[in-house]
Simulated assay, not measured.
Amino acid sequence: MNQKLHFSCYPVMKVTPILIVCLTLLLGACSLLSPEKEVTIDIPVSPTPLQKSLKGIWSLEMGSFSGEFQEKELDWSEGIPRKISMEWPKEVELLLLLTPPSWQPGLSPAPWGVYVSSLKDRGDISYKEGASISILMRILQAGVNLEGFNCSRFLEEMGTLDNPWQTDHELLMRQLGRQEMRSWYIRPKTLYRVNLTLPEGSWYFRSLLQEPVVSDGRTLEFTFPEGHTSLYNPASESVVEIQVDDHGEAVWMLTLAGNSHTTGACSVSSK
């Protein structure tokens, strides 16, 4: 299934062989002269247990280093298409983010991202590239000029990490905003081993790069980065949020489908 985000309609007319030739030449010339090109993005298949929760309103953000920015809402209540197409200025790179529907207000899975160079008209959106593209998009939205930025090198460096969502995004945004980017700024957040008891079931992290955790109701040991982490149980539509501070102190909150809350402190074993 392919979704086109932009299309035009033409009146029906009687077609003759001569007219076909003329139209072919005309459309070819228009394509060459058009300031835009059609870009097609391939979308991966989501894990089966999450497919129901991913139906709904998605957020689409598109930007470039030269200042273009567009934002749309996509109604994918009937399911996620395998491809989307959009019109985008020629000779302009495309940064694209797709954010799934929220699990709960203000809390959604991590966005998926893709970078399409100005020389290409096709790309594969991925969970992993979402981390890099979300950093760049936030910087561009803040009005920082990144023209001439070596995006391919940045994506390559981030791509060597198992989970780029666990890098220090604040540091990266600060240094990129100052145009002082160095590869050694791509560093992981401080990680802590946290003991946490989850209700039974499969729990998914915001980033689909991480394998789901299967809980039998007993206490499990996790490795969480400093800051906020959340997990989602699609069967019960419950969310657990964990906040770890820079001293290794951790608290959690479990929100059930009916918005009832349970909170508590986590047991932190060591860094």
Rank of each mutant, 00 (worst) to 15 (best):
Q3T: 14
H6Q: 14
C9S: 14
P11F: 04
V12Y: 08
T16R: 00
L19C: 11
I20Q: 11
L23A: 13
T24C: 13
T24K: 06
L25K: 06
L27C: 12
A29V: 12
S31W: 13
S34C: 11
E38C: 11
P44L: 03
V45G: 08
P49H: 03
L50I: 08
G56R: 06
I57N: 05
W58E: 00
L60N: 04
G63D: 12
G63I: 02
S66C: 10
G67M: 03
E71R: 15
L74C: 08
W76G: 00
I80Y: 01
I84A: 00
E87M: 12
E87I: 06
W88H: 05
P89E: 00
E91I: 02
E93H: 07
L95Y: 09
L95D: 04
L96S: 03
L98K: 01
P100H: 02
S102V: 09
Q104M: 14
P109C: 04
W112N: 01
S117T: 15
S117G: 13
R122D: 10
G123P: 02
G123W: 05
D124L: 10
D124P: 09
S126M: 07
Y127G: 10
Y127V: 14
S134N: 07
I139P: 12
Q141A: 09
N145H: 07
N145P: 03
C151T: 15
S152A: 13
M158H: 03
G159N: 13
G159D: 15
N163K: 00
Q166G: 07
E170K: 14
M173I: 11
L176W: 00
M181W: 15
W184G: 07
Y185I: 08
I186D: 00
I186Q: 01
P188F: 02
L191S: 08
R193Y: 11
L198G: 00
E200A: 11
W203P: 03
Y204D: 01
F205M: 06
R206G: 13
S207D: 15
S207N: 13
S207W: 02
L209C: 09
L209R: 00
V213A: 01
V213F: 01
V214R: 12
S215K: 07
D216M: 06
T219C: 11
L220E: 09
F222C: 05
F224L: 15
P225M: 03
E226C: 07
E226D: 09
H228Y: 13
H228L: 12
Y232W: 13
N233I: 05
S238N: 10
I242M: 08
D245K: 09
G248N: 03
G248E: 02
V251L: 05
L256V: 03
A257D: 14
A257W: 10
S260Y: 10
T262W: 06
T263N: 08
G264A: 04
S269V: 15
